[in-house]
Each structure stands twice: as C-alpha cells, then as structure tokens.
C-alpha cells in the first residue's frame, strides 16, 4: 500500500500508543498506590506493603458485601444469558418483521442513563410489594446485562447453520434433544463468554445497586461508603485493584473463548 512508512503513519502510531497509555493510566494508578505504605496517595512512593490487602481480609463487612456481589452477579449472569439465548436465536435465524425495532427496544437500556433506570425502578419497587434488596438489584442488572448478552450471542449465532438443526430432527432427535445436542454445544463458547461478561458488568455496577440494594450492599456500594474516610482510602485502593483484576481475568477469558472458533457449523 502506498501510505506505508509515511510521516502520517508514524505520527498516528505515536499518538495511538500514547492514547492507549492514557486509557490504561487509571487502571495502573490504583494498583501502584495499593502497595504504597502511606495513607496519602501521592508521590514520591514510600515502601512496598501488603498491609492494605491484609486489612481487607480482616473486615467482615467486606466479606458480606463480596458475598452479596457474587450472588447477585451469578444470578444476573445466568438469567440474562438464558434470556439472551432465547432472544438471539430467532433474531439471527429468521428475518422477522420488526426485527430492527425489537433490537432497538432491547438495546434501549444501554443509552438511558443508569440513574434514570435506577430511580424509575426505585419508584416501582417502592410502590409494589417486591421491595428493595438483592432481587431488586438482580432485576436492574438484568436490564443492563441483557442487551450485552443478546449482542454477544447474536454474533455467535450469525451464520449458524439452521440446516444442522434440521439434520438433527431428520435423524430422529426431538426439538428439545436437538437444542441440547446441537445448538447448545455449538453455542457454548458464546454462552460462556456471555456469562463471564455479564457477571463482570453486574459485579462492577454501582449506581443501580446503590439505589436498590437497601441494607444488602454490594462491593462497589460498600467501596463508595469507604471513600469518605481518608484513613480507609488505601484499603479502598486495594479492594479496587482486586475488582479490576477479577474483571480483567474474566474479560480476557471471555474474549479468548468468543474468538477461538467461529460457529459456522457447515462446511468451511
């Protein structure tokens, strides 16, 4: 190609590398100071310490919040992925009338500010007997995780040969058996990726949990409460570092799974 090695290309590369560094700056700053032996988050760095991490482990309310977060994230991930499978399959298999508006409706929670989602749910839940707590948070989180699950699974089902299902029916398998023996195994990488990513979204989410969790705080809500106390700041950094580490591992795993094989199914 003709724009190889030009000044423009080199400039773009330099800019892009700098920009990438800027993208990672906050993610690098938190771990850096979480090992710094000082209450103040400022340079120059003091000596290295595990102190803030051991402080975390000895705090029972953190363990309780962690337990809430994992419970909520797990239920949210499984439910929204199951709903996502149900939705993505027909959307990628048939060209339905109204497909565009259906997808638009499903993706709507992605563009509405989370605060609005949270307060509108708060109004409804306060008016009904469902009330606040873990299930309320699960409902809110499902709303924001479901579009992601649909998007991930639709790309997995894209080009997924319908003829494989027909072949299975033709060979005597019922529709139910066909789902478990053909569709599910072929979609499995996408399903796992969706579970991992929706788990991460729910696990990280703050605002909805802040409004709806009531007396059962999740980890981010607990963290928010700690930020008011300067003495707690270093251990909040440690907690944040751990949350970021979990997210990274989950997301890298999900991306790897998602891109390893494609699900075309028929002859290559």
């Amino acid at each position: 190609m003709r724009h190889d090695g030009t000044i423009g290309r080199r400039l773009r590369k330099a800019f892009s590398s700098a920009y990438l560094f800027y993208l990672y700056l906050p993610v690098l700053i938190l771990p850096l100071f979480s090992f710094n032996d000082s209450y103040y988050i400022s340079f120059p760095l003091q000596s290295f310490t595990w102190r803030w991490y051991s402080e975390l482990a000895s705090d029972p309310s953190i363990i309780a919040a962690l337990y809430n977060s994992v419970q909520i994230a797990l239920v949210t991930a499984v439910l929204s992925t199951a709903l996502g499978v149900l939705t993505a399959r027909p959307l990628s298999k048939y060209s339905l009338r109204g497909t565009k508006s259906i997808i638009g409706l499903i993706m709507l929670p992605m563009v509405i500010p989370e605060l609005i989602l949270a307060v509108s749910l708060l109004v409804v839940l306060n008016q009904t007997s469902i009330g606040l707590g873990k299930w309320a948070v699960v409902l809110g989180h499902m709303l924001i995780c479901y579009p992601f699950a649909v998007a991930i699974l639709m790309s997995r089902f894209e080009g997924f040969a319908t003829v494989l299902e027909e072949a299975s029916l033709d060979l005597g398998a019922t529709p139910f058996q066909t789902f478990w023996r053909i569709v599910f195994p072929l979609a499995l990488p996408g399903i796992i990726a969706s579970v991992l990513l929706t788990f991460t979204i729910s696990f990280d989410e703050f605002l909805i949990a802040f409004f709806l969790s009531s007396s059962e705080p999740t980890l981010p809500v607990y963290l928010w409460g700690q930020l008011r106390f300067p003495k707690k700041l270093p251990s909040a950094l440690a907690l944040g570092t751990l949350i970021i580490a979990v997210s990274f591992v989950f997301v890298i795993l999900a991306e790897w799974l998602r891109r390893r094989h494609s699900a075309t199914g028929s002859t290559p």
Binding site: P26, T200, P220, I244, V251
Partner: peptide, 15 residues
C-alpha cells in the same frame, strides 16, 4: 482498547 472499558466505572472515576 476494549479491556479498560470492562473495568468498574466507579473505580475508573475514583482513579
């Protein structure tokens, strides 16, 4: 490029 997006929004703002 996508990786940082997947980390907690709250934590990034805090950072």
């Amino acid at each position: 490029i996508t990786l940082p997006f997947w980390t907690s929004y709250l934590l990034r703002v805090f950072a």
